[in-house]
């Protein structure tokens, strides 16, 4: 399934004094089974954009085509079908929990979409394992869990729909570094092993660059660039100009090329590539 935006505008409260243009002239394609990151500052239109991906908002003008469904214009039934195929996890999804037990919480979506509950129940242990929860939580109330566990339950409640596309809005916000790393690994696994399209919306360039194979940079409701994360190193000045901070690794590379005259032609700034470049430079000696 491929997602295509064509000349998409979105305006909040059009023709009122409170009118607000959130998206303007967006055209781009998200290839099927890709891992795409949408980055931009707070207020750049990221969250308006992601709601177009499953028809929660529909373009004021232009079209969004998701697989066979085209927006605007889809009827209620295909729209609901679209929502099953595109799983959307909002920021702080733990705020949407409401059932008495974790199990009921997980079955909420499948019931709404009329999935085969027997099949879904058989699949519960796998989903719990994927998000790093123990099966013993199933009968517990979600509200007795820690914040991090609640987030995982909320995430599992969408994963269980086995959607082809997974859209995630700042999924690691509020987690500590270890919890964050685990979730990002899970998304990569879902993308690489299970062939799902993952769309990660974030303001964290580090996560975006480390995981995505396509990057969509959003600024003031417009597309600033569509690029591969590897090429982003070249555009770091442009990024800083629109208020996106490059990750520590990129700043590191910048500083060492300037101060030490290191010859940098790697695509990715990792611990290994940076260390190697430094050692090479030192071996070359003082009179280079």
């Amino acid at each position: 399934m491929e997602i295509v935006f064509k000349d998409v505008d979105y305006i909040y409260q059009p023709n009122t004094p409170l009118e607000h243009v959130a998206l303007q002239g967006l055209s781009f394609t998200i290839p099927s089974q890709s891992f795409t990151a949408i980055v931009g500052r707070t207020g750049s239109g990221k969250s308006t954009l992601l709601q177009q991906l499953n028809g929660l908002l529909q373009p004021t003008s232009g079209t969004v085509t998701i697989g066979k469904t085209r927006l605007p214009g889809a009827k209620a039934k295909p729209l609901k079908e679209l929502r099953r195929r595109v799983g959307l996890v909002f920021q702080y999804p733990e705020h949407q929990l409401f059932e008495e037990t974790v199990k009921q919480e997980l079955l909420f979506g499948p019931k709404n979409f009329g999935l085969d509950l027997g099949q879904v129940e058989a699949w519960l242990p796998q989903v719990l394992q994927d998000v790093g929860l123990d099966e013993s939580v199933l009968e517990r109330s979600p509200f007795t869990l820690s914040g991090g566990q609640m987030k995982r339950v909320a995430l599992a409640s969408v994963l269980i729909l086995d959607s082809e596309v997974l859209v995630l809005d700042e999924p690691t916000a509020g987690l500590d570094p270890v919890g964050k790393k685990q979730l990002l690994q899970l998304f990569r696994y879902l993308n690489e092993e299970k062939g799902k399209m993952v769309v990660l919306v974030t303001h964290n360039m580090e996560d975006a660059m480390a995981n995505a194979d396509q990057l969509l940079v959003l600024n003031n409701g417009c597309i600033e660039s569509v690029t591969s994360p590897k090429r982003l190193i070249e555009k770091r000045d442009q990024l800083e100009a629109i208020g996106l901070a490059p990750p520590e690794s990129i700043k590191f590379v910048d500083y060492m090329t300037q101060t030490l005259g290191v010859n940098w032609n790697e695509h990715e700034a990792t611990v290994d590539t940076v260390s190697q470049a430094l050692i090479k430079r030192i071996k070359a000696g003082a009179n280079k």
């Binding site: 909002f90 979506g109 019931k111 709404n112 729909l161």
Partner: peptide
């Protein structure tokens, strides 16, 4: 608004 959208994403109508 956010909660109703989040539940709509889980198929609530």
């Amino acid at each position: 608004d956010k909660i109703s959208k989040a539940q709509a994403a889980r198929g609530l109508d």
